[in-house]
């Protein structure tokens, strides 16, 4: 890898609003690994909500916007498998557009999910500590579209004090599914309850994942049930930024 690769951080809508700490954790990790990180200020959404809903035109408009803002970087990185999964679909979305198809292809080729990028492309020194027993949920897009499976686990093994407990069905969907969880809330709740049952069976005190959508869903259900299990993005633990309140947890007085 060349000297100081220039990385454009794709913030993602959910992170921007719900959990900025994930963004700062991502920046800390990327900088520690020697990247020069920029955050294009005119970025909005990757277009996934439109694409998944079948609104192809809106999705294409947003895809062009992302390409415009990010194609100048060596890499585009986001702390979300599902947003990067969407960037990787831009060539398919824009396949019939002769002007944009090659640009989409180039962007997709340099777009990476954070945890796999850290483990596969960079050498990052993890010197954080997290005292706890954590279980890792494999978010579907990261797992099946991008092959993110071993990377977060191998990075987490370097965290001092953390023990990793595998849950049954770690690869089964948590029931979030974007708008699915509000269109079919009863089915979604059954799915997240199944997930929580597997999680609780491990005895873990922390749930980690790589996609904020899933984490909001699982944390939301855990907190409704009064559970004390902490829910965090893996990047927060790796960057040593997991001391504050976890997702959905109370702020200290």
């Amino acid at each position: 890898m060349s000297e100081s690769p220039r990385v454009g951080l794709f913030a993602t809508c959910l992170m921007n609003v719900f959990r900025p700490n994930i963004g700062f954790s991502a920046v800390a990790l990327l900088e520690r690994a020697g990247c020069k990180v920029s955050v294009p200020m005119a970025q909005t959404c990757c277009g996934q909500p439109a694409w998944s809903a079948g609104d192809d035109d809106t999705a294409r408009a947003l895809a062009r916007q992302v390409i415009d803002q990010f194609e100048g970087f060596d890499y585009v990185v986001a702390a979300s498998g599902s947003c990067i999964g969407t960037l990787r679909k831009y060539p398919e979305m824009l396949a019939t557009d002769p002007d944009w198809a090659p640009r989409a292809l180039a962007l997709a080729g340099k777009s990476h999910e954070l945890l796999s990028f850290l483990a596969d492309e960079l050498k990052v020194n993890i010197d954080s500590a997290y005292p706890g027993r954590a279980s890792y949920h494999d978010s579907c897009s990261g797992l099946r579209e991008l092959g993110v499976k071993s990377q977060p686990r191998s990075l987490l093994r370097e965290v001092k004090g953390l023990s990793l407990l595998e849950m049954d069905d770690a690869e089964v969907c948590c029931g979030f599914g974007g708008s699915f969880c509000v269109k079919y809330p009863a089915i979604s709740e059954k799915m997240v309850d199944d997930k929580i049952r597997s999680l609780e069976a491990t005895g873990a005190d922390t749930l980690l994942g790589g996609d904020l959508g899933c984490l909001l869903n699982i944390a939301g259900r855990l907190k409704r049930k009064g559970s004390r299990i902490r829910v965090l993005h893996t990047a927060e633990v790796l960057a040593g930024r997991a001391d504050g309140p976890a997702i959905g947890d109370e702020e200290p007085r």
């Binding site: 913030a11 921007n16 609003v17 900025p20 963004g23 709740e189 869903n217 944390a219 939301g220 997702i247």
Partner: peptide, 21 residues
């Protein structure tokens, strides 16, 4: 549809982009 079965984890108050700026 979200809150019937789940709490909604709350944002921090300032977005990532504004803190970054």
């Amino acid at each position: 549809a979200w809150t019937q079965g789940r709490d909604l984890p709350a944002p921090a108050g300032e977005t990532f982009l504004e803190q970054w700026r």
